[in-house]
Design a protein around this nucleic acid. Structure first.
Length: 844
RNA sequence: GCCCGCGUGGUGGAAUGGUAGACACAGGGGACUUAAAAUCCCUAGGCCGAGAGGCCGUGCCGGUUCGAGUCCGGCCGCGGGCACCA
């Protein structure tokens, strides 16, 4: 048979399954390597070609590490709680567990067709009772540690989804998943004290081998800023307002103060004369959506309370305003306004004609009336701070405030506590019962898992309560301690809960006693390589680090961080076609004529977009496997470009790697598709081939280590281009080639490995070492040296490799073309570079 | 506005400061074939030139260097993240 992946791929997939080739067990005799993919949510749409991008990369690393003697843990599972299955259930009445099971089966089959070397005996799903049990158990650990609490908080309420959302799930006043509008509402919710870990989450980023961009995003999200809290007494013994400022050095320049409209002090200090105006203003801002309020281009608005605050540093009475450019949920909800040195205060001051006092003077002229100066400078108009640079003034004023009892140094974070409850059905129920006196108790460990009750309908209850309220038998329970009547908590956990610890369960997926056996945990953790999309930069990756640190503090895990090295694969985009009315067309129906695209009688616009059903540009990996084979799909996804880059899918190019694999097949098989004994020789390779092979092994090795798979494959293609025309192919070279090919195209490699006479799987065959001698010799007797004049190439000279200094200069100068070039110029300097080139610097 | 990242042929991309365009896709030419597919060989940055060869060329401007796609400064453009965060 010619190369036919449709036959050899199922054969080897079956072989691996029957022999449990990729089963991993603790083995202290071997170094371990834990390589993990971000497990998918099994959506109804099935896999698209973006999924296998990361999975192929980790599979190559996993297979490579096995060949290098590592004990590799490479598992796969399902993040199977999620909104789509629940929405579908609300529409159809079909239980989400049913849909989830179907989708999971589809995903598993699709993934298995690509021949990844997962240890399927470790497959887990976050929806399985056995998994839910431990997710709830960990939540109760947080409760016990005082890291979970209930609070009446202003939450992001999404009316369309009838649920609250975490801050991280809301952007521009909309739910990031569906685009539904989100409003603020006061509700009692479960919160997790992630802020208690803010410093560690920030500082421990230092030691992680993560992309700098992701680290920056997490730092940004945590948003630590150092400053001071300063007390401004309200004039007339009305109490005090506390403000937070990162620029306490500019205290002398404070000319007014601002309270957020929701600030409790507003009602208290507003004078009778101003009461109506302030009430109107507060009401007006309350009506704005969070989106409108955040609109930056809006001109500032505000109202004067009539009250004055006393600047502690100079006794100046400054007017107190209410303005919605100050928000209640950051710092103290109150600011001292220094229009000279803050752009927002400057804009507000000019609008309402408030004074601007310069207290920091930059080196050169700056018109403080026209624009705020936020940079460094020397303090002026600031009493005992005069003459100091900003940094010193900050230290000095904070010291002074602390002495006077008028304030203190304070660090503030942008990070808020994690809103952890959702009003949904398809999630882990919060294992808490509420007693009639308003107190609550945790569900005892032995009663876990607490599974969602069976329901007829999955939407919110008629009186607006979460869906779980419909199950009255389930809701009404008793206090496990006293037997008093109690009601179950109606909330479920967000989808992030399961993914916060699933990597730990993979280590010991069947343990009935513990969420993970400590000995196994110590062996396998941390995850050595974690690959997934950058969209999880601050959500999953921050939450998981938080839970992990809590588990670490409780002594349940041995590492401070879960994921040592993180790599983000890029997105795969595809062309989509749209007519002037905005209608999309399936690519197969589009005709290309004279450089334009036509469909349905319209001239179409072609654009590059994210794959989505509605744009008709989804590429299904099943179709690709059917047409080209799994090895070709794997190879193409890696060959497209750097793993981290955003790339455009081009089905036509898959044919290119398929042709490459056809040629690989032909290296070992003759025209009759028997093993080509005539051409496979036992002779030693000539130095050129030996050199090329040695360089290839060395290059592919470092390329895999550095996750540059596209260039590895180019190297493999070069080897095939060399071997194909050869009448005699040294068996040793072909064997080494098959071994370095194995992580990339494992089915092909197994088949050829067998054809070459091996009986064992190639999965654990040792990775070849580049032949040091061949590597050093380079395989070349003569080397081409470019000869430059003032850096411009003027000639090329053949000479021996490894020449340096004068030997190289002599060799080059002996060339007639070079001597002619040098005959009528003055050489000022000669620069020979070993094995590279020679540059002559000549005088003009 | 702030923080990341990126600009290289028709296309995807390659290049420890040392021959820019490896490897591939699409294209052009040829061989095989009754024909096509498949396969194989040749060609291929632009301009000038019959050719030898020459000139130009990695978003733009400048700098460092014997030598810059690569390092530095400034601009322009694209993508991502954050954003009245005090």
């Amino acid at each position: 048979m010619p190369y036919s992946p449709e036959q050899i791929e199922p054969k080897w997939q079956d072989f691996w399954k029957r022999h449990e080739t990729f089963r991993a067990e603790v083995d202290h005799a071997k170094p371990k390597y834990y390589v993990l993919d971000m497990f998918p949510y099994p959506s109804g749409a099935g896999l698209h070609v973006g999924h296998p991008l990361g999975y192929t990369a980790t599979d190559i690393v996993a297979r490579y590490k096995r060949m290098r003697g590592f004990n590799v843990l490479h598992p796969m599972g399902w993040d199977s709680f999620g909104l789509p299955a629940e929405r579908y259930a609300i529409r159809t009445g079909i239980h989400p567990a049913v849909t989830t099971k179907q989708n999971t089966d589809t995903f598993r089959a699709q993934i298995q067709r690509l021949g990844f070397s997962y240890d399927w005996s470790r497959e887990i799903a976050t929806t399985e009772p056995d998994f839910v049990r431990w997710t709830q158990w960990i939540f109760l650990q947080l409760v016990e540690k005082g890291l979970a609490y209930q609070a009446e908080v202003a939450v992001n309420w999404c009316p369309a989804q009838s649920t609250v959302l975490a801050n991280e799930e809301v952007k521009d006043g909309k739910y990031i998943e569906t685009g539904d509008p989100v409003e603020k509402r006061l509700m009692k919710q479960w919160m997790l004290k992630i802020t208690a870990y803010a410093d560690r989450l920030l500082e421990d980023l230092e030691d992680l081998d993560w992309p700098e961009g992701i680290k920056a995003m997490q730092r940004n999200w945590i948003g630590r800023s150092h400053g001071a809290e300063i007390v401004f007494p309200i004039d007339g013994d009305q109490g005090e307002m506390r403000v937070f400022s990162t620029r306490p050095d500019t205290l002398f320049g404070a000319t007014y103060a601002v309270l957020a409209p929701e600030h409790p002090l507003v009602a208290k200090i507003t004078t009778d004369a101003q009461r109506q105006a302030v009430a109107d203003y507060v009401e007006k801002t309350a009506k704005l959506s969070s989106f409108e309020r955040a609109e930056l281009s809006r001109t500032k608005t505000g109202a004067f309370t009539g009250a004055f605050a006393v600047n502690p540093v100079n006794g100046a009475k400054v007017p107190v305003w209410v303005a919605d450019y100050v928000t209640m949920d950051y710092g103290t909800g109150a600011v001292m306004a220094v229009p000279a040195h803050d752009e927002r205060d400057h804009e507000f001051a000019r609008l309402f004609d408030l004074p601007i006092i310069e207290v920091v003077r930059p080196g050169s002229g700056h018109d403080i009336a026209a624009e705020a100066w936020t940079g460094d400078g020397t303090l002026v108009n600031s009493g005992f701070l005069d003459g100091l640079p900003v940094a010193e003034a900050k230290t000095k004023i904070i010291g002074w405030l602390e002495e006077q009892g008028a304030g203190h140094a304070r660090t503030t974070y942008r990070l808020r506590d994690w809103l952890f409850s959702r009003q949904r059905y398809w999630g882990e129920p919060v294992p808490i019962v509420h007693l009639e006196d308003g107190s609550w108790r945790t569900v005892p460990d032995q009663d876990l898992p607490l599974l969602p009750p069976e329901l007829e309908e999955y939407g919110p209850s008629p009186d607006g309560e979460p869906p779980l309220a419909r199950a009255t038998d389930w809701v009404n329970t008793v206090d496990p301690e006293t037997g008093q009547p109690a009601r179950r908590d109606l909330n479920t956990m967000p989808q992030w809960a399961g993914s916060c610890w699933y990597y730990l369960r993979f280590i010991d997926p069947k343990n009935d006693e513990l969420f993970v056996d400590p000995e196994k945990e110590r062996y396998w953790m941390p995850v050595d390589l974690y690959v997934g999309g950058a969209e999880h930069a601050v959500l999953h990756l921050l939450y998981a680090r938080f839970w992990h640190k809590v588990l670490y503090d409780l002594g349940h895990v041995s590492t401070n961080e879960p994921f040592h090295k993180l790599f983000n694969q890029g997105m795969i985009l595809a062309h989509s076609y749209r007519d002037p009315n905005g209608r999309y067309y399936e690519p197969e129906t589009v005709e290309e004529r004279e450089g334009a695209f036509w469909g349905g009688g319209h001239k179409l616009d072609r654009q590059i977009e994210k794959m989505s059903k509605s744009r008709f540009n989804v590429v299904n990996p099943d179709d690709m496997v059917k047409e080209f084979g799994a090895d070709s799909v794997r190879l193409y996804e890696m060959f497209m470009g750097p793993l981290e880059a955003t790339k455009l899918w081009d089905t036509q190019s898959v044919a290119g790697v398929r042709r490459f694999l056809n040629r690989v097949w032909r290296l070992v098989h003759d025209d009759a598709d028997a093993v080509d004994t005539a051409r496979l020789t036992d002779a030693a390779p000539d130095p050129a081939l030996a050199g090329q092979m040695a360089r290839t092994i060395a290059a592919v090795t470092t390329d895999i280590e550095e996750m540059r798979f596209n260039t590895s494959i180019a190297r493999l293609m070069e080897v095939v281009n060399t071997l194909t025309p050869m009448e005699a192919r040294p068996r040793g070279v072909v064997t080494d080639f098959v071994r370095v090919l194995a992580p990339f195209a494992p089915h092909m490699a197994e088949e050829l490995w067998q054809a070459l006479g091996h009986t064992e799987s190639i999965a654990y065959a040792p990775w070849p070492e580049p032949d040091a001698e061949a590597l050093a010799a380079g395989g070349e007797e003569l080397k081409e040296y470019p000869v430059q004049l003032n850096g411009k190439i003027r000639a090329k000279v053949m000479a021996a490799p490894n020449l340096s200094g004068d030997a190289l200069l002599d060799a080059v100068k002996a060339d007639p073309k070079v001597s002619e070039l040098l005959s009528d110029v003055t050489v000022v300097r000669e620069i020979p570079v070993k094995d590279k080139l020679v540059n002559f610097v000549i005088a003009k």
